[in-house]
Every structure is written in structure tokens, then in C-alpha cells.
Design a protein around this nucleic acid. Structure first.
Lengths: 112, 112
DNA sequence: ATAAATACCTTGTGATACAAGGTACTAAAA
DNA sequence: TTTTAGTACCTTGTATCACAAGGTATTTAT
């Protein structure tokens, strides 16, 4: 199991994936296809097999809620939105992200 | 397995741990205790059980090399340093990190 | 009926941080 | 000379999670 840059970069992506997804959903209620599209626009590629379990976990943790909504072309969709608890949670992740940026800057500056 | 902020923040930390460790080692050859101290100073808590396997993986992937060095107080130490390949690898992670920052900014700006 | 498109979800795999515990060497105290 | 304390290295077991691959269900058009 050798280490390569792609592997590690994908590890990095993992870490902040949840944060990005919650940021996106906080815009307005969205279903899976919408979310994937938004992520793609930001150059963050995520597949269904990653998203469905993640959304389920966030739902059962009280961070997201969903409503079924009919579609004009196909089966009904699950539209996810943040709960109040979810907004608070997102604020905490916001802090976490800012802290991480600081840590990296600290280490990099020491490096010069 | 409920989701909580601490859990997710720790996931975030995971992602860029390798990057920070390589940044630190790129300063000068270091052994495990040195590395943990440096990480602590940057407010990044990592334990031995995480570090040893990670350093082994990086070594067997050709990113790090080590030299035994005697200590004045205790058993000899393994001093790790970056190989040429390791410096190239670090440069790639640098790119990955910059890209991630951009992605988050993109999503956040859209959010306003 | 059947096919195509869309949407939902599950299973199996691999990677890896961490907790906990183990081994080995050195030096100073009993 | 044995024992103890300190330091350093390493391994095993567990939990988490992204992803690949494949499956089920609904709707609409042929």
C-alpha cells in the first residue's frame, strides 16, 4: 500500500467534504443530483455511493431533514435542508476550517 | 454512530495531517518526539500510534529516509528527512492544499 | 408490453487515525 | 550487580468513511 499524491489529496478532500456539502445545502433545499452538480461546479467530484450514506448519517444525527417532492420527469425526489441544529453545526465546522487554515499557515511560516 | 462536530473536525484534521508532517520534516531531520512537539506548537495533537505507522508508510514509499543517531539520554533515535522524491511529493500536496482552499472559497462565495 | 431515464439505496473493500499495550536500550539508584 | 525510571521504537485491534459496483423502484415514451 504505497503512498501517492492522488491518494493523499483524496484524503484531504475527505476531510472537508461534509463541510462543503452543508455549505451547499444551506443555500436552499436540494436533492442528490443538485448537490452533485454544485460540487462539480466547484471542481469537487463526488459520487452517489458517497453521498447517500453521508446524507443518511446527517439526517439521523438531526443535522439535515428532508421532504419528498414530486418531479415532472421521473420518480419523486428527497429534498434535504438544514435543521436549526444543522445551522449551528455548520457554524462549528466553519470555526474548525478557519483553525485548520491557521495551523497550516503557522507551520508554513515557521518553515521560511 | 451519530455525527458530531468534534468527530468531523477530527476528520478534517486527518486530511491534511500528512501535509503538515512533511512540512515540518522539510525544515530539518527530526525524530518522532521532535515532530510531536512541533505539531503541538501548531495546536495539532497527534499521538505516537498515529505517527509511527505513517512514517513507516512514507519511508517505504520513498518519500522519507531515516538515519539512526545516538542520544545523550537514552536509546538511539530515528531521524527522518525528505528524499528528493519527497520534496516533489510535498510540492504536489502544496498544490492540493491550495486547490482545496479555492474550492471552499468558491462555494462560500456562491453562498452569499 | 418494453425500453429508457431518473432517482433512491446497499454491499464489499481498502485506507487510516487512534487507543492500548508491548519491546528494547541506557543510565542512575539500591 | 540487580533494579528502577526514563526514553524510544513498534504492533494489534477497532471504528470510521469514501468509493466502486450493483440493485430496486417510479415515470414516461415507444
Amino acid at each position: 500500500m504505497a503512498i501517492n499524491a492522488e491518494n493523499v489529496k483524496s484524503q484531504m478532500r475527505k476531510g472537508y467534504l461534509e463541510y462543503c456539502i452543508l455549505l451547499i445545502i444551506s443555500q436552499k433545499p436540494m436533492y442528490v443530483s443538485d448537490i452533485i452538480t454544485e460540487l462539480k461546479e466547484a471542481h469537487l467530484i463526488v459520487v452517489e455511493g458517497t453521498l447517500y450514506p453521508l446524507l443518511s448519517r446527517l439526517k439521523s444525527s438531526g443535522i439535515l431533514a428532508y421532504q419528498w417532492q414530486e418531479s415532472l420527469q421521473g420518480p419523486p425526489r428527497k429534498y434535504y435542508e438544514l435543521t436549526d441544529e444543522g445551522r449551528q453545526f455548520l457554524a462549528e465546522l466553519e470555526e474548525g476550517w478557519e483553525e485548520i487554515k491557521k495551523v497550516v499557515e503557522l507551520i508554513k511560516n515557521k518553515n521560511i
